[in-house]
Amino acid sequence: MTSLVLAAGYAAAALHFVFFACVVLGGFAAWWRPRLFWVHLGVAAYALGIVIVDWPCFLTEIENWSRAATGRAVMESGFIDFYLTGTLYPREHLMTSRVVIAAVVACSWAGAWWLARRRAARGREPFAVGGGG
C-alpha cells in the first residue's frame, strides 16, 4: 500500500512539471494544432487562478497526501515554491519570473492570433473546435 501511495505522489509531482510546461509553452502548440488554443486557454486560466485567487491545486493536494502518508514533509507553499523557486530563479525574483512567463504566454498567443488570421485569409478555420486540424 505504501508503494502505491508513494507512486501517486511521484506521479502528481511529474504531472505538476507537465502542467507547468503546458502553462508556459502550450500556446506554442496552438501554432501547430489551432484547437489546442482552447485547451491552453483553460490551463492558463486555471494556473492564473491558482496564482491570483489562490485556488487549490489538486495535484498539490495529492502530492501532500502522499508525502504525509509516507512520512515525508509536506509542501507548505505549493509546487512552484517547493521545486522551482530558489532553483530555477532566485527567491527574490518570483514576480520577475511570473512576468516573464506571462510575456511568453502573450507572445505565444500573439503568434497563434497571427497564424489564425493567415489561416482565415486562406479560407480555413482558424481555431476550429471540431473537425479539421
Rank of each mutant, 00 (worst) to 15 (best):
L59R: 01
S3T: 15
F58P: 00
H16I: 05
V129H: 05
A12C: 11
E125S: 02
F79I: 14
R91H: 12
E76F: 01
F19Y: 11
G130S: 10
E125C: 01
Y46L: 11
V100S: 09
A13E: 12
A30D: 08
P34C: 06
I52Y: 01
V129D: 05
A68V: 10
T70V: 12
T87C: 10
R35S: 05
A69V: 00
M1N: 05
P90E: 13
P90D: 12
G42D: 08
W31D: 08
R119A: 05
R122A: 15
V24L: 15
V53M: 12
V104Q: 06
V39N: 06
M1E: 04
V129W: 13
A103I: 13
R118G: 07
A47Q: 05
A13K: 15
A120G: 08
R119Q: 02
W113P: 03
V23P: 07
G9A: 04
F17R: 11
R124F: 00
A11N: 07
G26K: 09
A102P: 00
V51G: 04
L59D: 00
A68F: 03
E61L: 10
L41S: 06
W109E: 08
C107R: 04
F127A: 15
N64D: 06
A128T: 06
R91N: 05
L94R: 14
W31S: 10
C57N: 07
G133Y: 06
G111L: 15
F20S: 10
V24N: 04
T87K: 14
L115V: 02
G78I: 03
